[in-house]
Nucleic acid binder design. Structure first.
Lengths: 346, 346
DNA sequence: CTGAAAGCGCTTACAG
DNA sequence: CTGAAAGCGCTTACAG
């Protein structure tokens, strides 16, 4: 039923090789033959077969998408969704489609990402960070498949990664809080075994020291970046002997949870406790009060991921990493501005 | 480099056919041979090639994902993201991976979804509704590839679709507003050429008539389901001679925009104007005031999409459609409850 | 500029 | 229960 290269060749009175060259834009084909063949392909509605092409050429124009970590982002994490969207647009312009690994019946090994990538013969893959990273992610990282990591440090020869400069993140937050006059600052971080969380915590501690502020152990908590954990962490902080004047949560979702806990305790944000988040997700504009936060430049991260992966695939670059500058977005949860609603311009 | 079925066969002293049968779980293979071959595959880290398999078997275990409509959902629409997430999990359990078409250099035709699906030889595809649906979506719908639509009516022989029962949606909203004592109700719908938008508007009008309420033409606006359009629609409504007491927006994002416009006009939600949305996206819990809305059952929609597509692929069912019951979620934007914050339990 | 032919790594009747 | 062989639809040296 399906028309193949063979039939096109026959109809056009040329060889398969010639048709193949035309499809792949080789320039050593006569103009006339080219036009004739193209017309026939059009009229026969010829569609090349991916599997045959990939089998023969060992190149696929497909990028594998792996969400690393048992506690991972998946589709519904507000930060990663935006990054993936930008990535998709940019990698699409470069000529790639995206394969999402969801198959749970995959014969060989459930968690074996390399196997999946080899199976589809992807040209490269993007690895989205998460927590409790599986060993198999690093097997993939160290394979011959080019990988670009977002929020995960990849060290393979054909790998690179991009993340927000997590060291600067906390510096900006602490500086801002300091300038607002706050000295009693609490911290709600990510899981202890998460690299990202570690970096943020380290830089937070360092910044506190720089500004000569001391850290109260009762005020340092660990969540999992999602809302509920921020809520629970804040509940605990509110039980400590002394209550802090400011809370810095290492994700917006946790900040939202923290705000809720403060309100339930009958206190006001920002009058009693100031809250700062991290990510600048959509919802942070609409929460009451709108959330001051550190914006991760999703546009830049997604675009860099696409271009760096492309270079990795072509062998133009080898192992590289880029740290993207974060921005402080000031809204009312730290009490510095009058109410000022922002329109979502989407 | 890569180990093939041929080498496994040689190492095990059996034929390729036998190895193939073992890989594909045929039961007419001796227990002993099976074990021996499996061991060798394990130790040689054998990975089957997708392209070879698909080329030979004409089946791929891959589902194509198409976002229909020029103004489409893509990754960052809060409703579709959740639906896709559920779909991904369920279709993954059934043994499928997901292909997202992003390639802009696709040789044949930019918008030709059937060509893309044929190219990858997908077993089926999921079509996510949008506005200004391209002709090529219906070409795919009417092809021999099984398709399941979400929020888009598909009529192909091998197609089916699922959507929230849009007729019931407005009935619930109007009933609720009526019982709260509101008679002056404004409506912010989707684009006029969107089927979903049409259904919602029709059922809104019908419900109004049922309750003996009259519709003020100045109070009926058309947005595009995104925030900004709701904001602008509300601005216009506020310019009319008489101001309504209630606004029903056909998406949560538009409702958020409407709330903002009301606030900017110096009015209060819900004291001066009551607002009801539709979708129950994450952000609606955090907006000020928390938004009363109609919840679309994303869990059910995503799961149904997976199972119905599976049946469509196996030929168990043919053309079917399911309407999913919507639920009214009451929060403070319609003024019926005291403040009551909800925890996001993710 | 064009073509003949081998090969990519599987599956599938078919025969035994 | 097992194997020999054709075939899936392309690409790629290589020869002319």
């Amino acid at each position: 039923m399906k028309v193949t290269i063979k039939e096109i060749a026959k109809l056009a009175g040329v060889s398969q090789a010639t048709v193949s060259k035309i499809i792949n834009n080789y320039d050593d084909v006569g103009e006339e033959t080219k036009k004739r063949v193209l017309d026939i392909m059009e009229q026969q509605k010829y569609r090349p077969s991916y599997s045959a092409k990939t089998l023969a050429s060992k190149t696929s124009d497909v990028i594998g998408v792996v969400y690393a970590g048992k506690v991972n982002a998946n589709f519904n994490h507000p930060f990663f969704v935006d990054v993936m969207n930008v990535f998709k647009k940019n990698i699409g312009n470069l000529g790639y489609d995206l394969m999402f690994f969801s198959n749970e019946k995959f014969n060989m090994a459930h968690e074996d990402f390399l196997a999946r990538c080899t199976h589809y013969r992807v040209d490269g893959c993007i690895i989205i960070g998460g927590e409790e990273i599986q060993e198999s992610v690093y097997t993939l990282d160290n394979s011959s498949i080019p990988c670009i990591g977002v929020d995960i440090e990849l060290t393979g020869e054909k790998s690179g990664y991009i993340m927000t400069d997590n060291l600067k993140v906390s510096t900006k937050v602490v500086e801002h809080l300091y300038l607002l006059g706050h000295r009693d600052i609490a911290y709600i971080g990510g899981k202890k075994d998460s690299n990202i969380a570690k970096m943020r915590l380290e830089s937070f501690k360092r910044s506190m020291t720089e500004y000569g502020l001391s850290l109260n152990d009762d005020w340092v908590m660990y969540g999992d970046f999602f809302t509920k954990s921020g809520y629970e962490a804040m509940k605990k902080i509110l039980l400590s002997e002394k209550i802090p004047k400011a809370v810095y949560a290492a994700s917006d979702l946790m900040a939202l949870g923290a705000i809720q806990a403060v309100k339930e305790a009958g206190l006001s944000v920002p009058d009693d406790i100031v809250v700062i988040g991290l990510d600048d997700i959509e919802a942070s504009k609409y929460v009451d009060p709108p959330l001051t936060t550190i914006r991760q430049d999703k546009e830049k991260i997604g675009k860099l991921a696409a271009y760096m992966l492309y270079d990795l695939i072509r062998g133009t670059i080898h192992s590289t990493s880029v740290m993207v500058e974060p921005d402080l977005i000031i809204r009312q949860s730290c009490g510095t501005k009058k109410k000022n609603y922002v329109i979502n311009t989407k």
